[in-house]
Design a protein around this nucleic acid. Structure first.
Lengths: 190, 190
DNA sequence: TTGACAATCTAGCATCGCTAGATTTAAGTT
DNA sequence: AACTTAAATCTAGCGATGCTAGATTGTCAA
């Protein structure tokens, strides 16, 4: 009886090692370098073992993405000082979101760009995802009549800023001005 | 002398056939199905011939992306009625942008998501790219003090809306409300 | 007709995601 | 303690991929 518990514990540990290896490797060399063979070598097991944990490579990306969401929500909440004026809160969350995206590009890619098998805005949306959405809605709410739609738009604007800058489509040098703009528009907009 | 001209003409024709095949195939079966082998078969030449036209697969994606930009600019301009009030123009461009993105997801992906070797906001930015940016700046300008930054933000917001909806991150059913929001914010914002 | 050069193809390398089937390891039973 | 059975794990390989070296064909000018 204790045996099967130990095995399950070891199983979970190994799974965590796979996800951690994927994340580290992606951060260092990009997701293209994260191959199943390479991960197997990293955790010192043969390839097929990985498929006992994840259905396919995409599912590994999805596991890393979930970690990302688990971190993004709290990061956003932590960026707001207690009792800060709504407009400061809005600016701080916007800034924190972009900092998150630029400081961990591989993690952000897993969350929003790569195929990961994750599903959003559906009934089976995991709690971490709803929490992240909620962290943004909290600061958007004071300014908008329909918080849900406004938060979707807020998120989209931030995501667009992150992606276009990451791909060199817009000037990195003017990031601060764009943040000023998004905050100003939400503050006076709807 | 006419001979070398004919050869150059044939060369360009073949190149165009490669790009067209890539675009068609991507639209029908997704970019993952666009393999160099498959394209070679489509144009009835052997694989190495493709490498006489493009440095690598990414460059083929880039060629399709360029076609996309060449179409997006005029599409945006055409969406604005002559003499329309600035706010209508803004809404029409926003709508046209999203329609473009959703009606040609594979093309949009080539332009903004996939590695394509294209460079923006740099000195060597091709004319079509600048034209597309210009088409957006025209309708943003009336509302903003710094048109360049505002257009970057406008573009980013639209791109974010397109991407998050394409990935099912936000509710497709509320697209119209989000467009209303972005227009309202630009109209009253800065 | 021949020689040279360009155009094109065949064949193959290294790598990928993924899996069937053999093999080892460990657990439970006499 | 030896045996049986089942779980855990590995070896080996399939069918793809992007890309390329080297052979082969075709096309010109001398």
């Amino acid at each position: 009886m204790g045996i099967s518990e130990r095995k399950e514990r070891e199983r979970l540990e190994r799974e965590q090692r796979i996800v951690a290896a994927a994340r580290t490797l992606a951060q260092r060399d990009g997701w293209a370098s994260v191959t199943v063979r390479r991960l197997a070598q990293e955790i010192e097991y043969s390839q097929p073992v990985l498929y006992a944990h994840f259905e396919n490579r995409d599912a590994i990306v999805g596991a890393v993405a979930l970690e990302g969401f688990a971190e993004l929500g709290p990061t956003l909440r932590a960026s707001v000082r207690d009792g800060a004026p709504p407009i400061d809160a809005l600016r701080d969350v916007a800034t924190a979101y972009l900092v998150f995206a630029f400081e961990r590009p591989a993690l952000y890619e897993a969350m929003f760009v790569l195929p990961s098998g994750l599903r959003f805005a559906k009934s089976d949306t995991p709690k971490v995802l709803r929490d992240t959405f909620g962290a943004m809605m909290v600061v958007v709410e004071p300014f908008c009549s329909d918080p849900e739609v406004a938060t979707e738009y807020f998120w989209a604007a931030l995501h667009g800023l992150a992606e276009l800058e990451r791909h060199g489509r817009i000037r990195a040098s003017h990031r601060a001005e764009r943040v000023r703009l998004i905050v100003a528009m939400f503050a006076t907009g709807d």
